[in-house]
Design a protein around this nucleic acid. Structure first.
Lengths: 222, 222
DNA sequence: CGGTAATCTAGAACAAGTTTCAGACTTGAT
DNA sequence: ATCAAGTCTGAAACTTGTTCTAGATTACCG
């Protein structure tokens, strides 16, 4: 049993930087199947978003029986969250190569998120599928969602250049993540403009200066 | 046609304080039906959350044919978002009677949200159903979701004691709402503790001091 | 190699959201 | 009071996520 669920469950306990799960030995063909499935999922999602990812179609596209698909990913939401993990890993790689160049931590985080946002704008349907799955996920997907959250946290902390955040900073990072997800949703459902998302990201990033005033004096012009 | 959708669509244009929609004449019996439906929805939601609100059961509980239910609320998500509007109106009334008493705007907003949070804790399943519906809603529900958002904005601005917010303040309020929704979700899915939600709300409310320094000097102890 | 446990496949079956339809009932205008 | 238009009902049908089953296939152990 490939067992995504079990797999990620193990990783869902220690704080920020948790280890990758102990990969339960996957045959080469199984690894290939898994990749095919994730690829098909991303492809269908890119076309028509959440609704377009239909389990029967994913199964067909990836040349796998429906039952097998469900063995690898126990639900549609699991599948899409895994797809998101996949894409996030990509993005993290990309970001690592060209780190953000702002002067303050807040600027770098905002720049990082805006870069990610622009990437999502190129595939709005895919973004829709992944984000909707993420926020719709119930407790049974918590371990996987948590993993996504942890990965996002790492990306933000990287941008801040922090290794050992205080509780206050962790809270600020959580608030930034909250804003990030929720702002994405309002944008995806057409209730907020791109400009608004940008402003809100910049606004929330100001919290960083508030929790670590070492980087630059926070007080605005009087 | 009672037409929830049309109804709320009309309200979804002017900024913050939009007027109530021009109620398309509803007979008394129709009004009663609508109430029965919302009541059944809230009741089922209180039991088992999002999944427990099954359209057939709602129809049966409220003594209405399935087709009629769909005429009043074109989808399950529409129904639950309307349920949320209902509950929000309640809450706003309650809050009006006992306004928050903090010294700064930030304190009052945090207090208000924590009060709402405690109310939700009393009916976690209902909260689950409403919040999941809200964030899962696609474009077809935008007008209604927007209405909820506007109502929330009003509540927050009330707590701030503001009537005529600047764009920066509006952005801060949006960020607070984002955090509010997303923090609720992480709590509901068991990924964050109540304490964490509290801290995050307090953290994000600090943004208020940042965008309107008139209320009290923001600079922390050196 | 041979056997056995695990995995995979095809396809049926089930569950819940949504749609459809014919006929009964209400409403509002004349 | 009557008629036309709009609503409501009950029931069946359709869609898509999910589960189940029986029989192939594959992986691994001795």
């Amino acid at each position: 049993m490939p067992a995504e669920a079990k797999t990620a469950a193990k990783a869902a306990q220690s704080p920020v930087r948790a280890a990758q799960p102990v990969t339960p030995p996957l045959t080469e063909r199984q690894e290939a199947r898994r990749r095919r499935i994730l690829h098909a999922s991303a492809q269908l999602a890119s076309r028509g978003g959440f609704d377009a990812v239909q389990m029967r179609e994913v199964a067909e596209s990836s040349q796998v029986a429906l039952g097998t698909l469900y063995r690898y990913f126990p639900s549609k939401v699991h599948l899409l969250v895994a797809t998101m993990q996949d894409q996030l890993a990509h993005m993290h790689g990309t970001l690592r190569k060209k780190p953000p160049a702002g002067d303050t931590a807040a600027q770098r985080v905002a720049e990082t998120l805006m870069r990610a946002f622009r990437a999502l704008q190129r595939e709005p349907h895919l973004a829709d599928a992944m984000v909707r799955a993420l926020t719709f996920a119930d407790r049974s997907v918590s371990p996987e969602v948590d993993q996504v959250s942890r990965q996002t946290t790492v990306i933000i902390l990287d941008a801040m250049g922090l290794d050992d955040p205080t509780p206050a900073q962790l809270s600020a990072v959580r608030v930034i993540e909250h804003t990030w997800h929720s702002a994405l949703i309002t944008w995806l459902s057409g209730r907020a403009s791109i400009a608004q998302v940008k402003i809100d990201i910049e606004t929330v990033c100001r919290l960083i200066d508030l929790t670590s005033p070492e980087d630059r004096p926070p007080s605005p012009a009087p």
